Amino acid sequence: MRLLVLGGTEFVGRAVVEEGVARGWKVTVFNRGTHEAPDGVTALRGDRGAPDGLEALRHGEWDVVVDTWSWAPTAVRDAAELLAPRAASYVYVSSRSVYEYPVPVGADESAPLVEGSPDDAEYRDRIADYARVKAGGELAAVRAFGDRALLARAGLILGPYENIGRLPWWLNRIARGGDVLAPGPAELKLQFIDARDLAIWMLDAAARQVGGAFNVTSPVGHTTMRGLLEACVRVTGSSARLRWAEPDPILAAGVQPWQDLPVWVPPGELYEFLHRTNVDKALGEGLRCRPVEETVADTWAWLRSIPGDAPQRADRPAVGLDPKVEESLLSGGA
Rank of each mutant, 00 (worst) to 15 (best):
S305G: 07
T34P: 00
L330C: 00
R288K: 14
R14C: 02
P51M: 05
A128P: 08
W25L: 11
G146M: 08
E61L: 00
R2H: 15
L321F: 05
W169D: 02
L54Y: 15
Q191V: 04
T295M: 10
W71G: 01
D260M: 06
W169S: 01
P73E: 06
D119Y: 15
L151P: 00
E285G: 00
L228Y: 06
V292A: 11
T34E: 13
R86N: 11
S328A: 14
R196V: 09
W69P: 00
V114S: 04
T34K: 14
Y90V: 14
E246R: 13
A152M: 15
V265M: 13
G320Y: 01
R173E: 02
G286D: 12
A80L: 03
S305L: 10
Y161Q: 04
P38R: 13
S305C: 09
G8F: 04
A334I: 11
G49E: 10
V27D: 07
G13P: 05
E269V: 15
S238A: 13
I157D: 02
G8H: 07
R226W: 08
E327F: 04
R290A: 02
R316F: 15
R176P: 00
R208P: 01
R304M: 08
Q191S: 11
D67W: 07
Y130F: 11
A111E: 12
S239F: 08
Y99H: 12
G40Y: 06
V93T: 10
R316G: 00
L113W: 10
A131D: 13
L156M: 14
G106R: 10
D315N: 15
P168V: 03
P168I: 02
A43K: 10
G20P: 05
G20V: 05
G24D: 12
L274G: 02
A22I: 04
E230H: 09
I174K: 11
A131M: 08
D298F: 01
E326L: 01
R226A: 14
W170T: 00
T74D: 07
V325T: 15
W264G: 09
G106E: 10
T295W: 06
R2G: 08
A152F: 12
S328H: 13
H222N: 10
A245S: 14
W62E: 06
A111I: 13
A182N: 11
I250G: 10
A15M: 03
L151N: 01
M225S: 04
G7N: 07
G254F: 09
V103F: 12
R124T: 07
R143F: 01
V27L: 12
W69Y: 13
D248I: 00
G333P: 06
A88M: 02
G155K: 08
A297D: 09
A252V: 07
F273N: 07
W25D: 15
R313N: 13
P102M: 12
G221E: 14
S305P: 04
K324R: 15
L3M: 03
S331H: 13
I200Y: 06
G221Q: 14
I200S: 14
G184C: 11
N278D: 15
V265G: 00
V325H: 10
R23I: 08
D298M: 13
K26E: 15
S94W: 01
L251V: 04
A75T: 14
E269R: 12
L229Y: 02
L251N: 03
S94I: 04
A213E: 01
N172V: 01
T9W: 11
P266D: 03
G165P: 01
E293F: 02
A43S: 12
P267R: 14
R153H: 09
